[in-house]
Design a protein around this nucleic acid. Sequence first.
DNA 1: AGATAACCGAGACGGTACGTCCCGTCTTTTT
DNA 2: AAAAAGACGGGACGTACCGTCTCGGTTATCT
Lengths: 209, 209, 209, 209
Amino acid sequence: MTQPPPKAPDSTRRSERSRRAIYDAALALVAETGYAKTTIEGIAARAGVGKQTIYRWWPSKAAVLLEAYLDLTAQAADVGDDGGGESEIPDTGDLEADLKLVLRATVDELNSPAYDGPTRALAAEGMVNAELGAQFVEKLLEPQLQLYVKRLRSAQETGDVRPGIDPRTALELFTGPLTARWLLRTLPLTHEYADAIVEYALHGIAARR
Amino acid sequence: MTQPPPKAPDSTRRSERSRRAIYDAALALVAETGYAKTTIEGIAARAGVGKQTIYRWWPSKAAVLLEAYLDLTAQAADVGDDGGGESEIPDTGDLEADLKLVLRATVDELNSPAYDGPTRALAAEGMVNAELGAQFVEKLLEPQLQLYVKRLRSAQETGDVRPGIDPRTALELFTGPLTARWLLRTLPLTHEYADAIVEYALHGIAARR
Amino acid sequence: MTQPPPKAPDSTRRSERSRRAIYDAALALVAETGYAKTTIEGIAARAGVGKQTIYRWWPSKAAVLLEAYLDLTAQAADVGDDGGGESEIPDTGDLEADLKLVLRATVDELNSPAYDGPTRALAAEGMVNAELGAQFVEKLLEPQLQLYVKRLRSAQETGDVRPGIDPRTALELFTGPLTARWLLRTLPLTHEYADAIVEYALHGIAARR
Amino acid sequence: MTQPPPKAPDSTRRSERSRRAIYDAALALVAETGYAKTTIEGIAARAGVGKQTIYRWWPSKAAVLLEAYLDLTAQAADVGDDGGGESEIPDTGDLEADLKLVLRATVDELNSPAYDGPTRALAAEGMVNAELGAQFVEKLLEPQLQLYVKRLRSAQETGDVRPGIDPRTALELFTGPLTARWLLRTLPLTHEYADAIVEYALHGIAARR
DNA sequence: AGATAACCGAGACGGTACGTCCCGTCTTTTT
DNA sequence: AAAAAGACGGGACGTACCGTCTCGGTTATCT
């Protein structure tokens, strides 16, 4: 019933060389001129590639950039063991300290221009473009969130967190406020803010002493 | 030393008729075709207005839309006393119940397509365009958040919330997770989720009993 | 000193099947969509043939079409004895009548859409592309003109045409006006016109002194 | 019943400056690189003009060039009294000599590269594009042919041409062969050929009975 | 019989130009 | 002086083809 898809290209014959060049050009242009001023035409020219080669493999500028970004983090992860925070939330036994450490690091990352620029642009695009947003969440965001799930579960086993609490929901008490402040720029993101969030939220889910 | 300002137009002679038409056209077009496909040219044509009339009074498409949107909510607020939740958070004495009520209402609002479309577009634009974002926050968001501040302060007075808690920070435990889920579409926004957030967060900031 | 020729393909191994398919596809596409909209890519697709197979054997779209057209007329000539007027100009002894007959037939042919379309396109291309034009003239046009030469020579033998006349030049008095009218569409091509041309040219337009 | 035409632009507000620049750029590019390699994009760039300004006023590259060419001849005609042969066919009383003079001049013109290039391209395009062809004939060709009509009529009055002859048809005995040879390049265009055509056509090729 | 070339289909590739859309500025005319 | 109207120079869009270039997969000789 669905109309025939418009001739999917043969991905086995895809030029790896071009893909790499496109990733590099896209990331460079976004870094230099910002997301909004980066154009597909510009990426193609910089990469020494025909425009059609981009249109053949990606549906939009945002998709190109998401993939380039993903590739970048994947590469980073390959080199060292921890590329972009994929690693772990520390588990020293002191849940509050562990969370503060992580949230402070997150605050620093969100405040660093190198991260903020492209990520913000991608996130904004994903907010409007549902398909892209889903990819953004699935590939970039959710893996990070799962680290919280793991740490909170561990805390439940040690009795630091009440058993009834759903970790996937609870984690948003910590990440939600930071994410919202970052995206909407309501107020500055500081270490003090991160600490406060941890303190306030942790009391909520912690076992009664 | 500053270069001469680019001929500020005389706002006393501004055509009210045109402004109204532009607001209407802008909102209609965003509703019909989405923010991205709405163009200044389109707005002008639809409003029966010269393009220059738009460029004279607004710096960008986003600014037009923000103002149109603000105007819309102001109108709504004028008619009934409560237009878009500008009113108050109820204060029945039961803080948990009051917050659940409000958050559930917020969930419903965020889930309604009529609200979601234009607001999401504006928010996304504001995320990338700092000036617009500031306006968005100042005019639309912060007033809403201040309602929480008021309610939490009241709860502190009744002893439902510990005195040391900063209400402006604490409120984000409630709104942050919802906002983040809405913008990033990580998981569906439900009443159950709203309830859980209130329960988890409230324990954190509540007085020890 | 001449650079090595670009690897001439081995024509003994050429696929007859492909050639036929290309001819057919090319003629069909020109008939359906016109010469300008016919593309090599389209011919290849329609013929179920790789593009390279066309580029290997022909230098240009026009060359493909000229050959296809030549093949078509050759086929036609094979079937009946007279395919496209290759035969003869009648020689009844009445030169004027014979020429009128032929020119009227030519008018009809030029007026028929089936002939006009592709021939006009090829002629127009040949006008700009000298090499193709030469082929067009040599293979298609000149053989036809030689029929006039033969008939006019015969007329000289019978004394119907003055001995000093050069037949190759004289024939253009008849064909030139028709060709020019057809190509430039200055005025409609009619039997009356053909008759008038024959009469004027044959008897001269000057008053007898 | 006809669908509304796609918004005709307001020609009173047309930029004369742009039009001139486009004419100049178009003619220069055709002279330098030939018609086929001349692109609308190239004309726009060379003229310092937006592409849309060309598309707004002309339907095709050929139309631009026809107009540029027309403008050129009109300018030439304005300066001297005779710009492009618009003048007259001489009338010395010797019809044969007068025609030979004119046809020899035509041969020279057709043989000159400066004329041949653009005219051939326009003619070829007009052969395929009927609307353009009609303009080409009406604006450029027919005015020239009418000069022959005038001269032949004069010859009829002096008795040099039989009264029954239709001048509009008869003129094609002279121009048709030249035009056909020029367009199709069947054989070279020489003064001898021009003379022969005049002689044959004027006196008839048939033997006097 | 097996090797080894060439042709062949398919179609990805770097490019160029297309014709369209919209940008933000400028100019003309009307109110 | 603001406003409706819209032409303008410019830039990017997404598409269509160009002619070249690999890819396997048949043939079709030539060892």
